[in-house]
């Protein structure tokens, strides 16, 4: 099987949120208790969580007297250079890449719920479920892909905003859509060509890169190698979430100190 991707053509998304419910339905995820409103516009819940693997975010702006109301479906981007995999401390890694498709998923039989992936993901995607202490996120519906079905969110999308296929095909499509948008006077950006060596969820952002609450140049944190180093002395069998937590906490402090130092230098 070739490398796969979902193209998210946001110029066509109308925020019906069929994808949000279809994801919960297919993955048997319970509803969260929410109140008015989790975010701008009609956004709910507030963020991704162990129970919410995809979420439509709402964006509103006034430009040259006319209004733009835009929507972005947020979920795991299935990065080629995935910080979550790099950070995953167990051996073999619980955060796994399916080599053929490029899909990144959690092998729950190995996950110890340490939260390293949560800590290092530049998009705030994985979340550890307190109930079973496993990391949870979008699986790209790999169970469906393996049986020749589209991901649940893509299947349910009414307006063609979500398209699933081979990654190179999706990139071609993304470029064609962006070209059309450009001709119509928009300022599109394709997010996912180069970001983290290529994403498997590729956005066409009609209003450009700045408008959709996405990191401009997402990176795998530099100290991620240190984590492995720190944890090396601990054998696989005895590695616990607590130990990883400790290591992460330590690195976090180091990082904060470094930042503080840099700030000082600037002054």
């Amino acid at each position: 099987m070739a490398e796969k991707a979902v193209l998210l053509d946001l110029s066509k998304c109308m925020a019906c949120r069929g994808c949000q419910v279809a994801c919960k339905q297919w993955n048997d995820l319970p509803a969260e208790k929410t109140t008015f409103f989790g975010g701008p516009g009609y956004q709910n819940p507030k963020d991704l969580s162990p129970q919410t693997w995809t979420l439509v975010k709402f964006f509103e702006k006034k430009e040259n007297g006319s209004l733009i109301w835009a929507f972005r479906k947020h979920q795991c981007l299935h990065c080629s250079d995935a910080a979550c995999i790099a950070a995953c401390p167990v051996t073999p890694k619980a955060m796994t890449r399916d080599k053929e498709t490029g899909i990144v998923y959690v092998d729950e039989s190995r996950c110890i719920g340490c939260g390293a992936c949560v800590e290092y993901c530049p998009f705030g995607v994985p979340h550890v479920d307190e109930k079973d202490e496993k990391s949870k996120k979008c699986t790209f519906c790999i169970d469906r892909i393996q049986e020749g079905l589209e991901p649940a969110c893509v299947k349910t999308c009414p307006s063609g905003a979500l398209i699933f296929g081979d990654r190179d095909e999706m990139l071609k499509k993304a470029k064609a859509i962006a070209k059309k948008l450009k001709m119509a006077g928009r300022n599109p950006y394709i997010y996912g060509i180069k970001e983290l060596k290529g994403l498997h969820k590729i956005y066409v952002l009609p209003e450009g890169l700045d408008f959709y609450d996405l990191p401009k140049s997402p990176k795998v944190p530099e100290d991620i190698g240190l984590l492995e180093g720190l944890l090396k002395p601990i054998s696989v069998a005895t590695l616990t979430a607590a130990a990883v937590g400790l290591a992460i906490g330590y690195l976090k402090t180091v990082r904060q100190e470094q930042v503080a130092e840099k700030e000082k230098e600037k002054c």
Binding site: C16, G18, V21, A22, Q25, K155, T156, P158
Partner: peptide, 10 residues
């Protein structure tokens, strides 16, 4: 053609 909105999906 296989699609559904949030209500239909629920």
């Amino acid at each position: 053609q296989g699609s559904l909105c949030s209500k239909g999906s629920a």
